[in-house]
Structures are given as structure tokens and as C-alpha cells.
Nucleic acid binder design. Structure first.
Length: 673
DNA sequence: AGTCGCAATATTTTT
DNA sequence: TATTGCGACT
């Protein structure tokens, strides 16, 4: 069978598995995606109709890519209806198609910022806990969201999110948690009621409504789960308890095929627990486990580094990647004295990879732990006119100016959308939160939009407010035009608000309108953008050229690869971060896996950058404890070292700035046994 | 009292 | 870059 020919034995076993459920534990670069694709192709050739196969992936982009590749491989009508979704978009569909089952009619989907806005409304200003500490709405959202996704008790979520993952035997933390728990419980209860009253659904509700709805309703479960024969789940290591719970509704009627790498699990902060992969056969009846171990992506020296990184953990990841491709160039460890040097050198190397090796821009990928860390490299790219894209961070739909314009659309679609009113009213000059609240209190009494507009006029509010709404009142089902019409009235104010920035911000609305064009109405459009705020659609993404350097956060780099990879700032207190160290070993391990993900993206060349000062710092912390800095104890033989500029250092030099620090730090400060 | 505008400041990670 | 805090202005 074509399509299976290129698979190795392990991949072939997985792709053609005929039992019920299978968990494939696959190391980095071992052909996860290829195996999923082969699996789907195999099933379709065997006669399973495409529409009875569901592929769940982490982002829309990757799920779309997988489906496209299958289609191009098979090229037949049998593929029709094959769908690739994210958990969220899949659940949204189920809710949309079965409103009665899930008891959801006329809902508005609210996003992260709306959720925070809602908590702000509920808590009021200056909300304090029982110990008189100010509580930010953001942290309540964190706690609540974690509790829902990890399906854990509130106190557990508080421990993880508010008390830096304090150990359970920490009595003062436990006391504080118990003391404040009722307060949090109360606020969260109010929020849940608030949502119910206004028919709001938030991000987590999308999953939870479906998971619980199916669990509680046997008939619905049978009906919906019998639509599929096979569910293929990609990147399963980042699946959280709520998602597993959702999937459990499908154990009986469907075959589950999960693929993931436990060592690449980097979403614990969202409740994911990679250990579930290992317990799969215990949790899921009729299931088996198998492994993919042969790496096709990288050369051996790169994998040696990756292997060393995992082996220096106290946890046994049991990974030892072997390169099919054999030997290659050793990773470079490059020391800089300033971030500017680092950025310049990266771009230098990118340019010479093109000039000397004939590589293209897109063969180069710059990886950073945080979005912020990419800023300098980005600046140098702009300076030298290098084309680039940035992956990660907040999407277009979350940007301020877009939300400003979407707010009136939301009001038109649901005049009782308090959060949208709040945002829209405060946009105008002279209206702050106090006035806005007052106005909203009146307006929520109104019967419909027309009455709202009348009320606004009698309250002698700025005429633009009513004008904007009147302008788009009839465009419920034409969001693209609504954006245009709203903008007509709002533009002067936006100009005033954003000043020079308005020129480039304005451009975003072109893309926005294109996306809106494809949706049937405002509420659909809003729901769509909450699930997919990055606009990972087939639409053109601004003016991004085809061939460009990729700047990405490690979290967004999942599944990506490039010939040359540059890791920014792999310095002390970045890997792991200070915060992770404070959070304890579990967080530190997550950071290690982050670095592992980054390293294993590289096919041919890997450049690891770090602050020269990191070297001195090693002596400072607990005798080369790898949990304080991952590159502690790195065998010299694994890398080639370079120094930028004329910075003068030697590894043995413990004079100068590091001297007094070493004196102060009695090494038994850290007792990590 | 409420809102504005500037300055300071701090940045994990995201469906 | 986006939010927050503070002093000043209406």
C-alpha cells in the first residue's frame, strides 16, 4: 500500500493497529505527524469513510495541515468529510449542532479579557482577601480556569496558582488557603451565576459543557459518539484532565489513537499531566501502548545534547534518541555580553547561511522562552530588512483596537451583553467606568436595540455612540459590512486614541473583514474568534512574505522544525526561570522539557546563546545543581564554544563581580535532596 | 467625583 | 508593548 511503504516497523505497527485503543509514545522527530497521516490513510483505504474519522490537534493550523496532507495523499472522494479540529472548535460544533442536548441557546462566547472584565465587575475595585492582600481579577481567573481544566478542588487550584505550588505540608500556606477559600468560592459562584443570567459561555465552558453534558445523558452520548469510528489525537501529552474526561465519552463507540511525547509536555500550567499517558492502559479499557524511537529529523550531535539534557534530570524520561541521519555538526554554545550582541550575531549567521550555504530564510528559526525575548532579534531583522514572522503571543483578535470595534457588533447581536457595553462606552471621551456603569444599569432595562439607542439619546450621551449602533443595527448577518460601518463612525475617535499607531492598526481591519466575510453572522463571528484568536485561517495574513525567518516562542514551536535553530538567552535564571526554581521541582522539570522541545527542533545546526555571566553564576548555586541551571555540568565534548566581542573571561576566573557573590552564598542555602 | 494623560514598569508559556 | 499608578484637570 502506498503511504505505508515509507514507514518503519514501529510506525507501521501503529498506523495499522487493529485493536481498539492505542497510545503511541513518540520521541521528538520520530515521525508523529507522518504516523497519524498514515493511520488516517490506512483507515480510509480500509473503507472507513472520511467523515467517520476525527483528528484532534493542538492548533487549527496543524490540524488543517494534517488533513490537507491526507487529502493530497489519497486524492479520492473517500476522504470527504474528514475533519481536523482542536478540542475547542470540535466542542463548539457539538454545542452548535445540538443546542437542546446541551441546553445552550442564544449564548455569547466570551474570551479571556471579557472574563477578567466580568470578575472586575463582580469584585469591585480594590478587592482584598482575608489577609488584606489585593486580589487581582486575573489571578481569580487563573485559579478558576485551572480548577476547571485540571478538574481539581478549589483549594488545590489555589495552592498551585496562588501559593507558588507550595508543598502540601507547608502549614502556613495551607492555613492561608483554607482561610481564603470561602472568599474565592463565593466570587466564583457569583461569576457562574453571572454567566448563567446573561447566557455567557467562556473558554473553559466550551469543553466542560460538552464533557459533562454527554456524561449525564446516555442517549446523547450514544448518538454523538456513534458519528465517529476513529478519533486520532495529536500532541496528547498536553491533554488535560477535562479533555480526557471529554474523550472518555467516546471510549465505547470509537477507537482512540493517541500520539505524543511525554518529554515534550509543556502545558502543566493549563492542567496537563503527561503521566496520564503512561497510565493510559490502566485508565482506558482495551488499550495498548507502543513506542516510536527512531529520529529522522536531527543529526546525532544535536540529539546527544538533547539526550544529555534529559539524562541529567532526576526524573527518568527513558529517552535516548538515535539519529537515523547519523553524524553532523556539534551544537554551538555562544557567549554574549549584551543582548544586542546576541541579536546581531543571530542575524549575522542567518545572513551568512543564505549567502554561503544557499539556505532560505525559512530554514532559520529563532526560539525563545518568552515572546519578549524575541524583541531584540526582531528589531535587528527590521533594521536589516530581513523578512520574518513571529509565532506566539496575543493574536489579532485580542488586540485592543480590534476589540474596540468588535464591541458594538456584539451589542447589536445581543443588547444585553454587558461586557461589550462596558468596553464600548468607555471608549468615548469623558466616559469612565463610573458613567459607563450608570448608563448600563439603565440600558439593560431596554427591550431591544432600538430602545437602547433612544435611551442613549435622551441621556445626552455623545452622539457617536448611538450613531455607531444605528449604523450597524441591521447588519446582524453581515459582520464584514458591520465592521466597515462601525469604523466609519469610530475612526475619528480611534485616531485620537491611538495617535501615530492608528496607521498600522487600521490595516488589521482588512484581514478582519476577510475573516468576517466567511461567517454567517455576528455571533458566529464572535464565537469563532474566541476559539481562534490567532486567525489561523487560510486567509492572507497581512503582508507576510512566503520565505521568511521564523521567530517563535517555544510553546508555539511545537511540531515545527528548521535546518538551523537559534536558542535565545539560555542563561542562568532563564532555564529554569527564577519563578520555576521557587515553584519547586515539578516546575523545573517543565522548564527542562521546554528546552528539550527547543533543542529538538533543529535538523542540522543548533546555536545556543547565553550570557557570559552564566558561567560565573554556576559556582554560586549549589555545586552545579542541574536544577538551578540546566547547562551546569554540560560535558565540553558535546558543544563547541564561542565568545562574542572582546569580552575577557575565563572559566576559572572567580575575581571581579562574581567574587563577593560567591563569598555571600553559603552553598547549603539550597538543600535539594 | 470622575476622567485624562503622562510616566513608570514589568513582562512565561496559550487552546 | 500594554497595563497601572498618580497627579492634574473638568
Amino acid at each position: 500500500m502506498a503511504g505505508l511503504d515509507n514507514l518503519n516497523e514501529q510506525q507501521g505497527y501503529a498506523a495499522t493497529y487493529d485493536g481498539k485503543h492505542l497510545m503511541v509514545i513518540a520521541g521528538a522527530g520520530t515521525g508523529k505527524t507522518r504516523t497519524i497521516i498514515a493511520r488516517a490513510s490506512y483507515l480510509i483505504r480500509k473503507g472507513v469513510p472520511g467523515r467517520r474519522i476525527l483528528i484532534l490537534s493542538f492548533t487549527r493550523k496543524s490540524s488543517r495541515e494534517i488533513v490537507e496532507r491526507i487529502k493530497s495523499q489519497l486524492n479520492s472522494g473517500a476522504v470527504d468529510g474528514l475533519s481536523g479540529r482542536t478540542f475547542h472548535s470540535w466542542c463548539m460544533d457539538m454545542i452548535k449542532n445540538n443546542p437542546t442536548v446541551f441546553k445552550q441557546h442564544d449564548y455569547t462566547v466570551v474570551d479571556e479579557d471579557d472574563r477578567i472584565a466580568a470578575f472586575k465587575l463582580i469584585c469591585g475595585k480594590n478587592f482584598k482577601d482575608k489577609e488584606h492582600r489585593t486580589v487581582k481579577p486575573e489571578s481569580i481567573v487563573e485559579v478558576y480556569s485551572y480548577a476547571v481544566n485540571a478538574m481539581c478542588p478549589l483549594s488545590e487550584a489555589m495552592r498551585v496558582k496562588l501559593y507558588d505550588n507550595a508543598p502540601k505540608e507547608d502549614e502556613s500556606a495551607q492555613k492561608s488557603i483554607e482561610l481564603n477559600k470561602p472568599l474565592y468560592a463565593d466570587v466564583i459562584k457569583k461569576y457562574i451565576e453571572y454567566k448563567l443570567e446573561r447566557r455567557y459561555i467562556d473558554y473553559d465552558d466550551i469543553l466542560s459543557i460538552v464533557a459533562k453534558g454527554l456524561k449525564a445523558n446516555d442517549k446523547a452520548r450514544d448518538f454523538i459518539s456513534s458519528k465517529y469510528d476513529h478519533i486520532l489525537v495529536d500532541e496528547v501529552q498536553d491533554t488535560n484532565p477535562l479533555q480526557y474526561y471529554l474523550l472518555s465519552n467516546f471510549y465505547q463507540n470509537c477507537h482512540l489513537f493517541c500520539v505524543g511525547d511525554d518529554a515534550q509536555s509543556i502545558y502543566a500550567f493549563r492542567g496537563a499531566d503527561f503521566k496520564t499517558m503512561h497510565n493510559f492502559t490502566k485508565i482506558v479499557p482495551d488499550s495498548k501502548l507502543c513506542h516510536l524511537t527512531k529520529n529522522y529529523r536531527s543529526t546525532q550531535p544535536i540529539l546527544d545534547f538533547a539526550n544529555w539534557l534529559l539524562s541529567s534530570s532526576r526524573l527518568d524520561y527513558g529517552k535516548n534518541l538515535e539519529a537515523i541521519r547519523g553524524n553532523g555538526i556539534k551544537p554551538y554554545l555562544i557567549h554574549w555580553d549584551s543582548e544586542q550582541q546576541e541579536a546581531n550575531d543571530i542575524v549575522d549567521k542567518i545572513q551568512s547561511s543564505i549567502a554561503e550555504k544557499g539556505y532560505s530564510y525559512s530554514d532559520n528559526m529563532v526560539l525563545s522562552r518568552s515572546l519578549f525575548g524575541l524583541k531584540r532579534v526582531e528589531a535587528v531583522c527590521i533594521e536589516r530588512k530581513i523578512p520574518y514572522v513571529v509565532y506566539g503571543g496575543t493574536g489579532l483578535m485580542q488586540s485592543r483596537h480590534v476589540r474596540d470595534v468588535v464591541a458594538p457588533l456584539r451589542i447589536v447581536s445581543n443588547p444585553k451583553d454587558e461586557i461589550a457595553w462596558m468596553r464600548f462606552l468607555q471608549l468615548w471621551k469623558g466616559i469612565g467606568d463610573v458613567t459607563a456603569t450608570k448608563v448600563i444599569n439603565c440600558i439593560l432595562e431596554a427591550k431591544d436595540l432600538k430602545e437602547c439607542v433612544e435611551m442613549l439619546n435622551t441621556m445626552h450621551m455623545q452622539k457617536e455612540i448611538a450613531a455607531t449602533l444605528a449604523n450597524i443595527a441591521d447588519l446582524q448577518y453581515d459582520p464584514a459590512t458591520a465592521i466597515l460601518k462601525a469604523l466609519q463612525v469610530m475612526e475619528p475617535r480611534m485616531k485620537e486614541l491611538y495617535g501615530d499607531e492608528w496607521d498600522w492598526r487600521k490595516e488589521d481591519f482588512k484581514v478582519l473583514r476577510e475573516v468576517a466575510m466567511d461567517t454567517g453572522g455576528i455571533s458566529e463571528f464572535v464565537a469563532e474568534y474566541v476559539i481562534d484568536p490567532k486567525l489561523e485561517t487560510t486567509h492572507k495574513e497581512g503582508e507576510i512574505p512566503d520565505d521568511c525567518v521564523i521567530l517563535t516562542t517555544i510553546h508555539s514551536a511545537k511540531g515545527l522544525e528548521a535546518k538551523v535553530c537559534y536558542l535565545v538567552n539560555v542563561s542562568t535564571f532563564s532555564y529554569p526561570t527564577r519563578r520555576a526554581i521557587a515553584n519547586g521541582e515539578e516546575s523545573v522539570e517543565e522548564e527542562r522539557r521546554c528546552l528539550y522541545v527547543a533543542v529538538t527542533r533543529a535538523k542540522d545546526e543548533l546555536y545556543i546563546y547565553r550570557d557570559v555571566h552564566s558561567i560565573h553564576a554556576t559556582g554560586q548555586y549549589a555545586n552545579d545543581d542541574e536544577n538551578m541551571y540546566f547547562l551546569n555540568g554540560l560535558p565540553e565534548s558535546l558543544v563547541q564554544t564561542e565568545v562574542l566581542g572582546d569580552f575577557n573571561w575565563t572559566i576559572d576566573d572567580s575575581t571581579g563581580y562574581s567574587g563577593d557573590q560567591i563569598d555571600d552564598s553559603v552553598n547549603d542555602d539550597f538543600d535539594f535532596t
